[in-house]
Simulated assay, not measured.
Amino acid sequence: MARKPEGKLKRGWTTGACATAATKAAYTALLTNHFPDPVTITLPKGEQPAFPLCREEINDTTAMAAIVKDAGDDPDVTHRATIISRVSRGLPGSGIVFHAGEGVGMVTKPGLPIPAGEPAINPVPRRMMAEVIAEVAKEHSGTGDVVIEISIPDGEALATKTWNPRLGILGGLSILGTTGVVVPFSCSSWIHSIHRGIDVAIATGRSHVSGCTGSTSEKAVMDLYGLEDSDMLDMGDFAGGMLKYLREHPVPRLTIGGGFGKLTKLAMGHRDLHSGRSQVDMFWLAERLQELNAPTHVVEEAKTANTANQVLVRCLEENIPLAEKIAHLARDEALKILNGKTQVDVIIIDRPGNIVARSSIAK
């Protein structure tokens, strides 16, 4: 995860807001032969940003407008991407038809807000585009019967840096956004992806999913259980966000995998495992060692250790089962959040990727 810069951060605009603005400009030009530039739209919360156009084209049946997305200070993979809307006249009475152009993905699995076989244009951006089509049609005596094709050059390559392939969105990016505004470092898109991963797992009948803190633990868990990529939830540091959603949308079994330090924080009761928002308490670890009747010198070393991994290495050398204890405590913390419908086990992985501890499975 990118490091948050100091100072006040600049907000940006979602792909959905950019697609809506480009659609408004294109449809206005189709009806009037004039592109509004900049083009102003109204977002769901009433804000009215103006977007400059970077490209425009028109003929008798189609108009195209393009906008360069500004994500502000958020480390968004679509920052500076070009969002293109090509609006064509539709058949009378056809209403609005959405197409995926170059770089916009298609939904291939159930469980997402858009059904399989549809372009990956989410419900709120679809509604926003429908509203500007109706607004422009009313103002310029149009029918509102249009085909809207959204494309993002290089979108297919950019999508490999997102969770789209894992969610079954193939061929490109999604057109997203519920407010139209990107709040820098809000982590909302990450948590949204966790939720969608759970939805897809349920809709496709997956009985065993896993949330891991990183790619090393993901590989270890996948190899251990023979899980597929679509079984893996992108938990990262957001254990609480994953577990709370699973409480309301349970699956039969969950495996949590991660490094010793991250899962020690979960065992302590932390729900956000990011280093900037939770820390390992070395005295807490020392108390767990006392419960295991560890030698006094190991307990005292733990109190002054620089990192949790330093304590882990020492315990492995001394054959002290601290990692197993942490795995069980982390599992118990997860069970406190869940609703009793999901079996849980926890696996702790060391830095080279070896499994050093496993909890039993409990519900």
Rank of each mutant, 00 (worst) to 15 (best):
G236E: 05
G236C: 08
G240C: 08
G240L: 11
M242I: 06
K244P: 05
L246D: 07
E248G: 04
E248K: 05
E248R: 03
R253N: 04
R253S: 13
L254H: 07
T255V: 12
T255Q: 03
I256Y: 00
I256N: 03
I256M: 12
G258R: 02
G259F: 11
G259Y: 03
F260L: 02
F260N: 00
G261P: 00
G261N: 03
K262L: 04
K262M: 12
L263Y: 01
M268I: 02
H270E: 11
H270P: 12
R271S: 13
D272A: 11
L273F: 07
L273H: 02
H274P: 09
H274K: 08
G276E: 14
G276Y: 14
G276W: 12
S278I: 08
V280A: 02
D281T: 12
F283K: 15
F283I: 15
W284K: 04
W284E: 06
L285D: 06
A286D: 03
A286F: 08
A286I: 06
E287N: 13
E287F: 00
R288C: 13
R288G: 11
R288T: 10
L289K: 05
Q290N: 14
L292T: 05
L292E: 10
N293I: 05
N293W: 07
A294W: 05
A294S: 13
T296D: 07
V298D: 10
V299I: 15
V299D: 00
E300K: 14
E300W: 09
E301A: 09
E301R: 13
E301Y: 13
K303D: 03
K303M: 14
K303R: 15
K303P: 09
T304H: 11
T304Y: 11
T304N: 06
T307A: 07
T307N: 01
A308D: 02
N309M: 09
V311E: 04
V311L: 06
L312G: 00
L312E: 02
L312Y: 00
V313S: 11
V313D: 13
L316D: 00
E318Y: 05
I320M: 06
I320E: 05
A323K: 02
E324Q: 12
E324D: 15
K325V: 05
K325A: 14
A327N: 03
A327C: 08
H328V: 12
H328A: 10
A330P: 06
A330T: 11
E333A: 03
L335W: 03
I337T: 15
I337H: 02
L338N: 00
L338I: 08
L338K: 03
L338Y: 01
G340H: 07
